[in-house]
Amino acid sequence: MHRVSPRAVWYWTARAAILWIVLIAPQVIWWLADSDGSALPHLIVGAVWLVLAAVHLVVMPQWRYRVHRWEATETAVYTQTGWLSQERRIAPISRVQTVDSERGPIEQLFKLANVTVTTASAAGPIKIDGLAAADADRLVADLTTRVGETTGDAT
């Protein structure tokens, strides 16, 4: 069973940090614009946000790194994802329809990539997040060959 790349921790942190910045920025702007009122409410709300953000940014990526696992054997693909809410997904290679690899801007920053394996069910895509780019390429190549060897329309 493989763990994802350790760099994924930083990737998840960066992704979450962007989300927090988007949430907190308008409040900072409001604070700066709202010059006459008392600063106390802003300070309290801001402090609460900062504590929440800090806890999330420290705990979530570590927790995820401990949970996330993936494995592709000759006959099946398996992932384990999540932190508070966790999910394990399994699909047999014989039912795979597409193998898809993607590198978003943040992922490129950390030299990571994700691989999505879809089946004929809309509920069944298996996404492996935070793979080292080279691993992702190898996995896609492997899966594509294996899937190509199966027959039938996979429904």
Partner: peptide, 23 residues
């Protein structure tokens, strides 16, 4: 054509899983 096994925080404490068969 696949299984999803989902456990929320509270489900894990209760030792329960939501097993989803995808088709």
């Amino acid at each position: 054509i696949g299984w999803n096994m989902r456990t929320s925080f509270f489900q894990r404490r209760a030792g329960l899983t939501t097993l989803v068969a995808t088709t």
